[in-house]
Design a protein around this nucleic acid. Structure first.
Lengths: 228, 228
DNA sequence: TAGATGTTTCCATTATCATCGAAATATGGA
DNA sequence: TCCATATTTCGATGATAATGGAAACATCTA
């Protein structure tokens, strides 16, 4: 009767709450040890191991072994896209603890959306580029302007290298916390990496949040005219 | 502990096999009566009613009432995008019956991917436009060339109207059956509608397949240099 | 080499939820 | 108005799968 791939199978993999937490944590683009993921999901290591195995078998997650440590990350960008699209459709979670509220706030402020910036920071930066005429919004997608290409060159991002990546050059990504779009694609990734290189932002160790450093606040103000 | 939306909830909605079948059927972009969806999913009407109600409450599906008939369709394009992204990640289904094989073949040949063409037809058409220089593949996305805009004008597709839609103008959509890209976005939708207007293609009533008419075979050969 | 640590495997228990029979409600048609 | 059809609502049953205790395996360090 039914023809085509079995979406129920992959959705079922994601629908289990412990696995959803793990997958969401892996959306920061990093690899994490099994024990850390177990802690994050609030389950015992053996349960985490059970779930991680299922996800590996389904080619959703991959593992890198370093001695007795197993580091797990998302299999590829395609998986990340599925998770991101689910995030924009998913119901909000009621905040029930102080720690949860703190984490929620930090994640909304600035975070990684797999490999590019999101949250208030991501959207403000996108708006800044639009306001300065470095980015244009046309045909419901983003494009860099010639002025924008000059700006990126001056900001020491090599767009020729960026163009060579096996990724969309630049596209819109709907930000689930801001309900507006931020920059995604290879350009978005280059921007994230540049800000990390400049030490303007730092990853928060245990959640997908990104923290703006003191230096970063100054730099973002001077270069992008952004208050954070 | 967990911060951000609850992806498990929406994934769980999609992960139930009967609901997955229904949602996949609704990916043809049409509205279907409850009884038809029940039949398609191989469940009793009361079970279908139960599932449809859950999906309506989650804003995944919407209903239009016509007398005693309730016609159900996907809530919006965002939902379709989630389902489509899941399709590209989902495992293939083993074909176990003659009817299933027939449906599978028809769907791979040509189908609607929500609101644009997919399958062999969708990909061949995309390739044709690329070969003729009407479409270019740049920065890992599609763009119409000036020649392409002329072509669409001659094919009686008003691109000015197409541009005004609250949709991406044109983008790539990964075809799960061909594992290559076909055209999506407002341009893709315009193309689908034009072919239907010309009666070059017809929707198959019970599955998401599209049938190429005799007239269509001739037209596609002459205009697009496509053998179907 | 022995003990510590990280991770995986195994299995019985418990919680969750889809299903259909029964019945009720809503609408159309003769 | 009555009967037929489409759909919804209710509830008990049966199937599924995540969980943690126990144990085994893999690697590191003193």
């Amino acid at each position: 009767m039914n023809a085509g791939p079995n979406i129920a199978a992959v959705a079922k993999l994601i629908s289990e709450p412990s696995r959803a937490v793990i997958l969401t944590a892996l959306l920061d683009g990093r690899f994490h040890p099994a024990s850390s993921l177990a802690y994050t999901a609030g389950i015992k290591p053996q349960t985490a191991s059970f779930h991680l195995k299922k996800m590996i078998e389904a080619n959703v997650v991959r593992v890198e072994k370093h001695g007795r440590h197993r580091y797990y990350g998302l299999e590829n960008y395609e998986v990340a896209e599925v998770l991101e699209s689910l995030l924009s459709l998913a119901p909000k979670v009621e905040v029930k603890s102080f720690k949860q509220a703190t984490n929620d706030k930090a994640i909304r402020y600035a975070r990684t959306c797999y490999d590019h910036l999101a949250g208030q920071l991501g959207v403000k930066m996108t708006d800044s580029l639009l306001d300065h005429g470095f980015l244009e919004h046309k045909d419901n997608t983003f494009n860099l302007t010639p002025e924008g290409e000059t700006f990126f060159h001056d900001f020491e991002i090599d767009l020729e290298q960026v163009r060579k990546k096996r990724r969309t050059y630049i596209h819109k990504c709907l930000d689930w916390s801001e309900r507006r779009h931020h920059i995604a694609g290879a350009v978005g990734n280059a921007l994230l990496e540049r800000l990390i290189d400049l030490k303007w932002i730092e990853r928060v160790p245990t959640i997908r949040a990104v923290k703006v450093t003191t230096t970063g606040k100054t730099g973002l103000q001077e270069v992008f005219n952004i208050e954070m």
